[in-house]
Amino acid sequence: MGTIEIKEGGVMSELTESRIYEWLSAVTDPEVPVLTILDLGIVRKVSISNTEKGAAVTISITPTYSGCPAMDVISVGIRMALLSQGIKDIKIELQLSPAWTTDWMTEDGKRKLKEYGIAPPNRKAFQPLGFFEEEEVTCPRCGAADTTLVSNFGPTSCKALYKCLSCFEPFEHFKCH
């Protein structure tokens, strides 16, 4: 397959996967707007092909949780990002396996989460906890380790509710998943 070119700023340039990843880095999670979909690790594959009508792009994304309502908004976000770059033939595929894990979240993403006030996932996913056992989570505001779980379920599927026993601020924790 030859080089696929697109018109950018009046000049033709090569369409590569890394160009597309650059565009995708502008698409954010509607629930946690500091995170891009690349930070979250939900973009699994990008492929480009040439058709008679021009470049066709297929993006595979994986949901964080089965019922995550943000996935539809994210799909629209991806479509808009590519459309604005002149790509018209866009296919978005939902890929369930391998299942998403917070291990795929970038270090940069974890840093941004913490700055935003959400305690990032802090251990390798899938070390199961026993009954009534709590994860050790550091307060994103004061940095104290003395925190307590309020509920394993929070305002979105991916977060749990915690309280800091040092500065007494309630905060959210992005669950290891």
Binding site: P63, Y65, S66, L96, S97, P98, A99, W100, T101, F126, S157, H177
Partner: peptide
Amino acid sequence: SAVAEKSLKE
């Protein structure tokens, strides 16, 4: 199997 793998975590 993909649905099972995904659902199991939840």
